[in-house]
Every structure is written in structure tokens, then in C-alpha cells.
Design a protein around this nucleic acid. Structure first.
Length: 543
RNA sequence: GACCGGUUCGUCUAGGGGUUAGGACACCGCCCUUUCACGGCGGCAACACGGGUUCAAAUCCCGUACCGGUUACCA
């Protein structure tokens, strides 16, 4: 029998980080065993489900590249079958009509009400005290024929227990006494979650149900339905939950955008990096390794490697440097600087396009349009303009390893790729290419005040020296690192100052920031013309 | 309250009878260096608590504490 698993989100919001991880694990499991990964939208709660959130979830999955097999199933399409199933159980005497009038608690008070009632009952609640549980079939039929409204509840046996072997948590048992006669069909004929899930999982021939641990008690209820239906339940695997830093629930209401998948997409994260990060939240291959390609994840994934304890998604609210988990940021940076350049370039291109910094010369054989779902103006996250990392951005040992032949023509495709390769070394997100990296692609870039103070204002001589250096550049025939170095060194000696003073001053003037690659590489990359222009510029000095 | 689950550095985790309890992120220091990173080296830092079982317990058992999940005619 081929393995068939499904990811079954309810479309009541965007793709939550926890759901995304569930989807990932489910996907990895399917691919690992060569099974099918199916998608089902659990939109039985018509009041709360929206098309927009369905789209958002699909977008999120697409971004993470978790492609599903077969058609997406919409649970609401199967409502008729769910109803029929409930009626069948009623007929067989495995369920009963509950004529208790429906009480309508205001949504928000539901939880509180539950706790209140439980307290009041001191925990000793008889789950089998429904007055309609044992009325005669005749009476039940008569009332129904009379037009009395009723819900259909599963008739859970007085004694016994449900049990199943969870692939993660092991043997799970629960006394019937602790499970209520759950409602299968609402009095308005609307099928409820547990019924719908079981029916659909059977219909879709699901072999493994992988979902959050918050469903553990639902699973017992579902096992009851499977039993009533005479169907062997699938294998269950419950996943530990992802918690907020205070170990509480990670929710949109409380934590906002950090929990949404689209936030990461829009903040310049690479799907591969975020997926990698997510995979390690609650799962481990049992080895000392952090970076895994999708192929490796699929290869190594197993249900045995899933933990039983919840994981904290670590971030600090109101701290722009720690807005999301450090490790996620680190991982993204690691991907950016180590992935094959050719794989990174399309992402940078897309980012520059959004920032209106892209020029077609950067890609002479440009034909295929790149889909880039980012939207502009998602600030707040990513690296903000003024250089969030101010004093910490990045380079080194790096330029020494570069073999510089003849420099590519400024603005050409090779130039673009070289430049991306040069600056990616110290970037954290794709956004950095258009923010911190702006000066490489535009004449219109900002100057970091702290950099000006530190590297220019402290050395007033630079105001005349730097334009002077520009003049030394003018006659140069070839503008490559060795030659530039010779000129700058000679100039430095002549002025009797340190190389660092000139280099750092030039860096600030040429790139607007105090951090960046080797200055020789910057000069060469920017090219003679632009270097001279920027060295001579007095705008900063006149501020 | 009841039922169920969990508890190894700040965080993610390895380890499941004998380990100097390992790695990663973060943080700190040193090296590299024209800046900042990267990289290298080093440091800080953990088995929730109490009882057992055992020659030996972070690992097995019991209890306690704490945390979480669930307890809807929501999903």
C-alpha cells in the first residue's frame, strides 16, 4: 500500500509557522517513503473560513516549495457525504439524536465557559448523562418527524478505552469515560470537524495522519468514529508544538507578523533557508549538522527523529535586531553567502527589481521573467534603511582569495555577478542587497551618520585628501586592485597617515556606510569613474 | 478541576545505565584585518526537584514541582 499523507489546514488566517512546519514534516515524510503528499482545506467552519486565507496558505506552501500531489480537496465539498455518514451511524444505533436546544455562547466566552463548567463539576463529569442518549428509537423518530431539531451525537460506550500507537508519542490510551458523546452533525445539519476529518481521511485513503499535538485528544474521538464505522484507523504521528519565547501559545493576535510565513518571504528570507530552520525545530537527524538541502532532508527524515517536547521559537519583541529567531537569521545569511552564486542571482535580481535598482544590462540574456511575490513596503522587518546593524555589518580574507583577471565591464552581467558575490558575504537577507548594497547599484544612496562621524569628521584632512586621491586615479589606465593599491599606498605615505584612515574614509564616501568588503575591491567594483566622482563629492562634507 | 503530554546550556538540540554531558545559534575574548563580517582558536553556559532500582542513573521506576495541550452544535 502506498503511503498517503495530507496537510489539512483550516483557512482562517495566513500560514502560521507551526502549520508550515507540520506541512514540511508531512511533505518530508511523504517524499522520504515515496508516498503521496495531499492537501485538504478544512473549510467546514464556513463562518470563519475565507478564500483569501486559502490563497495565502497556498502561497505560503508554494513559497516553501512543498508541492502537493493530486487535486486540492475542499472539505466543504464533501459535506453531503459527511451528513450521510452521520445518518448511517444513527440508523445503526451507533449515534443518537440529541434534542437539547442549542445554546449559543458568544464565541470569545466559549473557552472561559468550558473552564468554568469543568471547575464547577470538580472534574467529575458524567459524560453519559445526556437525557436523549437512551430514549427509544420510536420516540426519537417521532420527535424528528414532528420537526424537532436535533444534533447527532456519537454514542460512546459506557466502559472501555480508546488506544492507538502514536508514531511519536507512543501508546496513547483514554478511557471512554473521559470522552463525551461528541456531536457529529450540528442541529442545522452541518457536519463537525471530527466527523469530517475521519470521513475525508478514509475517502482520501490516508495512511498516516501527521498533525500537531494539540489534536491528541481529538484523535481519541476520531478513533471512536473509525471504530463505529468499522474502518481501521491510519497511523497517527503527533508533532510537538512551537511555542512563543514565554512558552505560551504563539499566536497572531499576541505576536503579530513573526508567526506568518509571508513575513519571512517579504523580509528577504530564502525559502530553502527557512525550510531548513523549520526542519530543525522539533526534529533532528541525530547528527552534528545544521545545513541540509531539501534532498538531504527528504533522505534523512524519519518520524523517529521527531521530539516529544515543544520547541520555543525565540525572538524579542521590540528589538529590531532580534525580531525573529537568531538561528533563522543566521541560517539565511549562511545560505546567502554559501549557496551557488547562480542560484542566488535570480533572487537578487528580483529584489533589485522591486527596489527599482535593476538594470537590464545586468542580464544580457534575460528572457525568462522571474516570479517574485514580494511586495514593496514591507518595512519594519528586514534591514531597515539606516543600517540596522550599523556597527556590525561585514568582509575579509576574502579579497585575498579572489583571482582578478581583467575586470568585467561595469554594469555587465559578469560585473553584476561579481558584485553580488562580493557583497553577499556579509548580508543576512535579500533585502540587504537593496538596502546596504544600494550604493553598488545606484548613485542615490544614503550616508550613515555614525560612519561619517567615525571615518570622515574625525579626520578633517580627508575633505581635501579624498578629492586629491581621486585625481591620482584619473591618469590610471587600468583600474584593478593591484594598481589601485599601489596608488593608495603611495598617497598614504605621502600624506604620512595610516592606510586605514584613507580606506575607511573612502568607504564611507563611496558606499555610505562604515562596513563592507575590502576597499580595493570596492574601488574596482565601482570602477574608476564612479570612484572618482564619489571621492570628489562634497555633499557629505557640506552637511 | 479532570484527562493527556512534556522537562539536557538563554534558545535549537545530541546523548537513553559507566561521556571531562557533544554540536549549533546568541554572547564574550583572542587571531586574521584598511572597516565590518566570514573563518580559525578559546571562553561562558544545562541533565527541574525528591525518593528508589543498580557496583554505577542525565539515561530505568515512583512521587512532586513547573510548563504545555485538551476538555464547543470551533477547527
Amino acid at each position: 500500500m502506498t503511503t498517503r499523507v495530507r496537510f489539512a489546514p483550516s483557512p482562517t488566517g495566513y500560514l502560521h509557522i507551526g502549520s508550515a512546519r507540520t506541512a514540511l514534516f508531512t511533505y518530508l515524510y511523504a517524499r522520504h517513503v515515496g508516498g503521496k503528499f495531499l492537501l485538504r482545506i478544512e473549510d467546514t467552519d464556513l463562518a470563519r473560513s475565507t478564500e483569501e486565507s486559502t490563497r495565502s496558505i497556498l502561497d505560503g506552501l508554494a513559497w516553501l516549495e512543498l508541492g502537493h500531489d493530486e487535486e486540492v480537496v475542499f472539505q466543504s465539498d464533501n459535506a453531503e457525504k459527511h451528513r450521510a455518514t452521520a445518518l448511517k451511524l444513527l440508523e445503526e444505533g451507533k449515534a443518537y439524536r440529541d434534542f437539547t436546544p442549542k445554546s449559543e455562547p458568544s464565541d470569545q466566552n466559549v473557552k472561559e465557559g468550558i473552564v468554568e463548567r469543568a471547575r464547577a463539576a470538580q472534574g467529575f463529569k458524567n459524560m453519559r448523562d445526556n437525557p436523549f442518549r437512551d430514549i427509544s428509537e420510536v420516540e426519537s423518530n417521532a420527535r424528528a418527524a414532528n420537526g424537532d431539531t436535533f444534533a447527532i451525537r456519537l454514542k460512546v460506550a459506557e466502559s472501555g478505552k480508546t488506544s492507538f500507537e502514536d508514531a511519536v508519542y507512543g501508546l496513547q490510551e483514554r478511557n471512554y469515560a473521559d470522552t463525551e458523546d461528541l456531536v457529529l452533525l450540528r442541529s442545522d445539519g452541518h457536519p463537525l470537524y471530527n466527523l469530517a476529518v475521519v470521513c475525508d481521511d478514509i475517502e482520501m485513503r490516508i495512511t498516516h495522519v501527521i498533525r500537531g499535538q494539540d489534536h491528541l485528544t481529538n484523535t481519541h474521538k476520531q478513533v471512536l468514529i473509525y471504530e463505529a464505522l468499522g474502518v481501521t484507523p491510519p497511523t497517527f504521528a503527533h508533532l510537538p508544538l512551537i511555542m512563543a519565547p514565554n512558552k505560551g501559545k504563539l499566536s497572531k493576535r499576541k505576536h503579530g507578523e513573526v508567526v506568518s510565513m509571508t513575513t519571512y518571504r517579504d523580509a528577504g528570507f530564502l525559502a530553502a533557508a527557512f525550510r531548513n530552520f523549520l526542519a530543525l525545530l522539533g526534529w533532528s537527524a541525530g547528527e552534528e549538522k545544521e545545513i541540509y538541502s531539501l534532498t538531504e532532508l527528504i533522505e534523512k527524515f524519519s518520524l523517529d527523529g521527531i521530539h516529544r517536547s515543544n520547541a520555543v521559537f525565540n525572538f524579542t519583541e521590540n528589538d529590531p535586531r532580534k525580531w525573529t529567531d537568531d538561528k533563522a537569521i543566521w541560517m539565511n545569511a549562511a545560505y546567502i553567502r554559501t549557496m551557488p552564486l547562480a542560484d542566488l542571482v535570480p533572487f537578487v535580481k528580483a529584489e533589485l527589481k522591486v527596489a527599482k535598482l535593476w538594470r537590464d544590462e545586468y542580464d544580457d540574456d534575460d528572457e525568462s521573467p522571474i516570479s517574485y511575490p514580494y511586495e514593496e513596503g514591507v518595512a519594519g522587518f528586514s534591514s531597515p534603511p539606516g543600517l540596522r546593524r550599523g556597527a556590525d555589518a561585514s568582509s575579509a580574507g576574502w579579497s585575498a582569495n579572489r583571482v582578478v583577471l581583467s575586470p568585467p565591464e561595469i554594469g555587465s552581467k559578469p560585473w553584476f555577478e561579481n558584485t553580488v558575490d562580493l557583497i553577499r558575504q556579509r548580508f543576512f537577507t535579500l533585502k540587504d542587497f537593496s538596502a546596504q548594497g544600494r550604493a553598488y547599484f545606484s548613485e542615490d544612496y544614503d550616508f550613515d551618520q555614525a560612519a561619517i562621524e567615525k571615518n570622515l569628521n574625525k579626520f578633517p584632512d580627508l575633505k581635501t585628501w579624498l578629492p586629491e586621491l581621486a585625481e591620482r586615479f584619473e591618469p590610471m589606465q587600468s583600474f584593478t586592485e593591484p594598481e589601485i593599491e599601489a596608488v593608495v599606498k603611495a598617497f598614504t605615505d605621502e600624506k604620512g597617515t595610516k592606510l586605514g584612515v584613507i580606506m575607511n574614509g573612502a568607504r564611507t564616501l563611496l558606499t555610505g556606510v562604515a562596513v563592507g568588503p575590502s576597499m580595493l575591491a570596492v574601488f574596482e567594483t565601482l570602477g574608476k569613474e564612479r570612484s572618482i566622482l564619489r571621492l570628489k563629492s562634497q555633499v557629505v562634507w557640506n552637511q
